[in-house]
Nucleic acid binder design. Structure first.
Lengths: 286, 286
DNA sequence: GTCCATTTTGTAATTAAATTACATTTTATT
DNA sequence: AATAAAATGTAATTTAATTACAAAATGGAC
């Protein structure tokens, strides 16, 4: 847990003087890390050893050590650990928790990405005759997003959130086609069955899913997202965000491999959309 | 710049003894922050004042201050600057850049969320007779995702990425209905027109879009994502991730306002999906 | 090479900071 | 109200960091 949260949390359990110290630190943590034990003691109106004892209570070896811990927890934008929303949270509370959990999930995923798998996936996509993205339920929108992204390229791309359509596509797939199956758990029976059909058709099956899951076992290439499962009913799935970012990586790799000439083409596509938009006016800038 | 990078970078410019200090720190920064100036001096085989001078060279006020800076730069996963992908990036390079840019976008959004607007939106959703999510192009998948999320509740919910369908729905909307329009730029003509129709029908129009955009002006409530526009062709839009997280916040607020009884209902919905999945076996755990 | 100026480094003294040991006060309990 | 336990503070001690200054080392200029 973050030291500041820990401080906040243990306010009630501390003795009167130690609480004073905690409050002074919480009021302005940034300045606390540049103060000496003497000045902090004075500010909190307690003695120096009290501050020292307080530091030990909080799990530090002493005052300097405590300052180090505090400094680390103050690094701006540190994605905190996964935090659960609770019934009595205010709007500001759960907003912060959701954003931070999502950032934490991305951070974890980044630290665990399988570069080799990604490279294989990008290579496969680049050589693909046809690309398809399949997902069901919550993962359908991820597949949908992926489909949108790949529409900008020449390779035919398909998306479906309908099991029957997916089955047909899987059966008709050929070697050289790449089918990407998206599932958080990797345990959705219907999707696993489609993946098995696709594999039998000699297409390349990429699973954007949990490692060691049934779907992963049907896949030629597995891209796993490593996000801790959400047992929390309130907390929306951060894993799909991680999946979306993985797809961003795939698109980017795909584009880069096409070389600089391709870049101009993308520019033209972007430009062609201009007419469908209202242009920015000076008034808007205000 | 990160202090460690700065250290690495200034290795050549340092004097012989100071370089020794830098090398010792770089070799094991984690342990350096727990050492005294004396032990560090001994390890680097230099005198204590040399270490002190080194700290000042690196921009710190003294040794303890340097340790604080070092500790902060060692915090794992300090991302958060928008970084652009370049043609010659390796897979690892652009993967890191994409993840970090996305986290940066979330961080910015978190720091700028309009709590009041969110609260209004949640209140409106809770009192809604009907909820609809509309988006076009890349924003369609965001609307799709939102639709999936809200399907778990009793309030009728609709999604469309088709302009004609959207128009019909907008014209038929009534006071008490909430229509959420999603657009990164807020300048897509077709969507703005639909929003105008919806507004004319007395429905509550929520714009999940850029502030001060045409769409924002058609909206009763604006939830803006504040993500710097991506001028980069390679970089996929981080803004839609921010939008997704905003939707997570809306869902969470919506759920919390329903109270604890509702929570159990969600549990039952979750449980009802179990049969569609392969259950975890001991073998999987390995 | 050698002289001098400059920079770098180290030694020892000084100052500042943190910690410890112990005394005093406060608090809770009977 | 008496006593034990806990909390806090005072003063002494120890440890750490810094400063002042002296000694090497380095680099030109001749």
């Amino acid at each position: 847990m973050n030291l500041l949260e820990q401080l906040q949390h243990s306010l009630l359990e501390l003795s009167k003087s130690e609480r004073k110290v905690a409050q002074v630190i919480l009021a302005d943590p940034q300045s606390a890390i540049h103060q000496s034990i003497a000045s902090l003691a004075e500010q909190a109106d307690v003695s120096e050893p009290t501050v020292n004892r307080f530091c030990r209570t909080m799990g530090a070896k002493g005052y300097p050590d405590f300052k180090l811990l505090l400094a680390q927890s103050l690094v701006k934008g540190t994605p905190y650990v996964n935090r659960h929303v609770e019934q009595n949270d205010t709007l500001a509370d759960y907003t912060a928790k959701i954003f931070e959990s999502t950032m934490a999930a991305l951070n974890v995923t980044r630290n665990h990405v399988d570069n080799e798998g990604l490279q294989q996936a990008i290579d496969a996509l680049n050589q693909a005759q046809k690309i398809a993205f399949f997902g069901l339920g919550a993962s359908a929108s991820v597949a949908h997003d992926a489909h949108n992204k790949f529409l900008r390229f020449e390779t035919p791309v398909q998306f479906s959130d309908d099991v029957l359509m997916q089955r047909m596509a899987a059966i008709n797939a050929k070697a050289g086609d790449v089918l990407i199956f998206i599932s958080h758990t990797g345990r959705t029976k219907a999707l696993c069955e489609v993946a098995a059909l696709a594999k039998a058709s000699d297409a390349t099956v990429i699973g954007l899913t949990a490692a060691d899951s049934p779907l992963a076992r049907e896949s030629n290439i597995v891209l796993s997202t490593q996000v801790p499962e959400d047992t929390d009913v309130y907390m929306p799935m951060a894993s799909r965000i991680a999946q979306l970012v993985i797809i961003d990586v795939l698109v980017t790799g795909f584009t880069l491999d096409k070389g600089p000439a391709f870049r101009d083409k993308l520019r033209r596509i972007k430009a062609s959309l201009r007419d469908s938009r209202y242009q920015k006016t000076i008034k808007d800038k205000e």
